[in-house]
Amino acid sequence: MMQPGDVLIQIEDLTKVFYTDEIETHALSGVHLAVNKGEYVAMSGPSGCGKSTLLSIIGLLDTPTAGRYFLNGKPVENLDFAERARIRNQEIGFIFQSFNLIGDLTVYENVELPLTYRQRMPSAERKKRVMEALERVGMAHRLRHYPSQLSGGQQQRVAVARALAGHPSILLADEPTGNLDSRNGEAVMELLANLHKDGATICMVTHDPRFAKHAQREVHLFDGKVVAEEELKKLMAEVQV
């Protein structure tokens, strides 16, 4: 049994509906999910199943239409923009499929960026954290380079360093290997595994079963709902038929 104090993310009956002019799209319907501190969870499912929407809500980039979301035991679904920004900055580290580094900033500046949004962090402290993060991902030798001067794998390592620099409670990775070749993809997965080994909590969205296996636990989504692995297989088979 999980102890209440160990739960980092608690999601109850979460629903997300997108409204366009005439169409209502239910991206998530009654999702329940709990992620413990130090856990490595992979979220998988077919394209359009709602896994990225769920990750966006977990990362406070989006808000649910209904349901409850507790982060570190505190409800977060109704926070104002400034408070959500503060939590994103201090509690969450993002790793995106397309790296999302800022092309006009150097490697050092990209990694430093989240720290610059923190109030009163001395520059010496910022520098220490940036260097630690870059050394951790093996990119400390490319401080002055711009993203365009790096390979895809190197860019994703810099993105991981940026996510780590703020010492977040949780790392959220959205298809972190999606834009990488298999060798670089494996390297990034290894990096995430090492981070997990050192105590990081990780939620990763992937549609690739090979990478999902790196996680401790796999959450399967289908049509906006969390389903068991067996049920997913059955549903997928039905779809194929």
Binding site: G59, L61, F81, A85, R86, I87, N100, L113, P114, G166
Partner: peptide, 16 residues
């Protein structure tokens, strides 16, 4: 847009 989205994602508030 993308740059702004990245900055917002990593915790920049709109005032900043």
């Amino acid at each position: 847009n993308r740059e702004i989205a990245i900055r917002l994602a990593i915790g920049a508030n709109r005032g900043r």
